[in-house]
Design a protein around this nucleic acid. Structure first.
Ligand SMILES: [Mn+2]
Ligand SMILES: [Mn+2]
Ligand SMILES: [Zn+2]
Ligand SMILES: [Zn+2]
Lengths: 147, 147
DNA sequence: TTGTTATTGAAATTTAATCTCAATTGCAAT
DNA sequence: ATTGCAATTGAGATTAAATTTCAATAACAA
């Protein structure tokens, strides 16, 4: 069994929940997408494979996958959720282009460390974080921006 | 006229839009709240003062206020938008408690500088950013968190 | 004034997400 | 195996935020 399935099953058992066929299929589909995805991406892909899993179950399972630490919600600027893997992918944050919508992933250890220090200062126990820088990618830098 | 009204009017004129009484009232109400707020907060407060402004106009005006750089959307974990002032308030980011919902504001110059450097590395022109650290505040730190 | 164009509010619509509930399934204890 | 119980599922209803539509109105430049 793959690492993500092991971890999900462990989480579910711990909570007195079941690792059902539906949950396994959703997990596999989610981990077959190596990019940001949304609920409907999963729904469409599963149905193309004749897995007739309801949207309700996908929503419910994604919540569990986030709680178990396998996925995280990515803020995209759009008004519905987007997700990406945690397990098997190094942590990163995002630059978002306001014009073309491009998403650039970056990571910076010093920022990560300073965040830890901020949390220490406040006695805060971090579980997760999201840093999103919004602006214009190098292709789209024109006269945008009002001041 | 207050600074925020001047700036909003300037922005509107530049876009060929009008600084209407409704927009002025919404702006004033938004700047009278010195905390995070949501659309319905404005709607209720305006109606308590017998300003019968529609929700549609509030939504439309908040979009303009964000575009003009007077307000920004705060990510709150909830699934509707929250806003806060930019003009007249020093930039900060947020710690969010998963248990009690508390929002702690912090600012860290070194993180801000490192963000600028990241943007330079990518030729990205930042307009705005949001850093949200999710976890447990010092009061709520118990046995939460699965690994 | 006058004419053009932006703006508004009310209601309809869209869309994501959640909830309800009866039927089904997983699973642990016999 | 059989049984019983609690968790799970899917279909459809529901909720709630946000957006759109459109006719009436208001802003403002000519
Ligand atoms: Mn990513
Ligand atoms: Mn704040
Ligand atoms: Zn771009
Ligand atoms: Zn707390």
């Amino acid at each position: 069994m793959r690492a993500e399935e092991k971890k999900f099953e462990k989480y579910l058992r711990l909570c007195g929940l079941r690792f059902t066929p539906e949950r396994r299929l959703i997990l596999r589909e989610a981990f077959s997408i190596h990019d940001h995805f949304e609920v409907d991406d999963l729904f469409v892909r599963l149905h193309q494979k004749d897995c007739r899993i309801s949207r309700a179950t996908i929503y419910r399972t994604l919540d569990l996958l986030v709680k178990s630490g396998l996925l995280r919600e990515v803020i995209s600027g759009e008004r519905h959720s987007h997700y990406e893997h945690i397990l098997g992918h190094r942590h990163h944050d995002h630059l978002l282009c306001l014009k073309c919508g491009k998403v650039i992933e970056f990571s910076n250890n010093r920022i990560e460390e300073l965040q830890k220090r901020v949390c220490e200062d406040y006695g805060f126990k971090p579980e997760n974080h999201r840093l999103q820088i919004i602006g214009y990618c190098n292709r789209c830098q024109l006269d945008q921006g009002f001041t």
